[in-house]
Design a protein around this nucleic acid. Structure first.
Lengths: 115, 115
DNA sequence: AACCAGTATTCATTTTAAAACATATTGCTT
DNA sequence: AAGCAATATGTTTTAAAATGAATACTGGTT
């Protein structure tokens, strides 16, 4: 009887809009950290990501979304900040939900993977 | 009535072995081109990919597979060449099959995507 | 034994992407 | 009006990855 190697099916999903990628796991993590920290600056810090990069991702998301996912506050108390809109919170939930469904399905496929 | 944006779920799958990624769409294309051209050199040319890169991908595949997917012929008539083993042909088929199943499932999820 | 075309391998070069740095701007607070 | 902390944006550095060029090797064929 032969020792069969173990193979796993890995899946990466993202949501795309006509003008390009809209939301993948990277942006979702960023959204979660913005929600947690109240600013792009601190979210980026916690993720050890450059502020510039984080800011650009937020721009992309907001532009491709039907309505912005992140509300940015410029100046004012504490210099400003950023927080998720309802659409932003919904986007996180929807992404994880869809991701889970597809990954569960992929896992079932892994069982009867015949290589 | 509001104009709803169109969002698609994109899916990328690959097969992984304990020591790392085993087979994704890039390697599958390479396999197909090796099959078609009879050598890594010409396969790489057709894909406008560096020979070095193609050769390394073949190495990875072969090492992570239970048995090699590509049989390489060194020297001899025509300098040698490369051709798929049965395992190689099977790998292509299996990959596309699994990919199709998962993408079909993802497409269904796209229908009732509520963003 | 010289030839040939493809495999095998190293090294320098180029390209690309990410990170780091530097400023300007904003608007509440003091 | 000066201070503050965050957004906004341009520029420069650095690091990583892909490419290209060069060279040795292989083993049938002529």
């Amino acid at each position: 009887m032969s020792e069969n190697k173990k193979y796993n099916i890995e899946v990466r999903i993202w949501i795309e809009e006509t003008s390009g990628p809209f939301l993948g796991i990277g942006k979702v993590w960023l959204l979660e950290n913005i929600q947690k920290n109240g600013s792009i600056t601190n979210a980026a810090k916690e993720m050890k990501m450059a502020y510039r990069q984080a800011w650009q991702l937020v721009e992309e998301m907001n532009q491709r979304a039907e309505s912005p996912l992140v509300e940015k506050l410029l100046g004012g108390k504490g210099g400003g900040g950023a927080k998720l809109t309802e659409a932003g919170e919904r986007a996180i939930a929807v992404f994880y939900e869809v991701e889970k469904r597809i990954k569960d399905f992929a896992l079932k496929e892994t069982q009867n993977l015949k290589l």
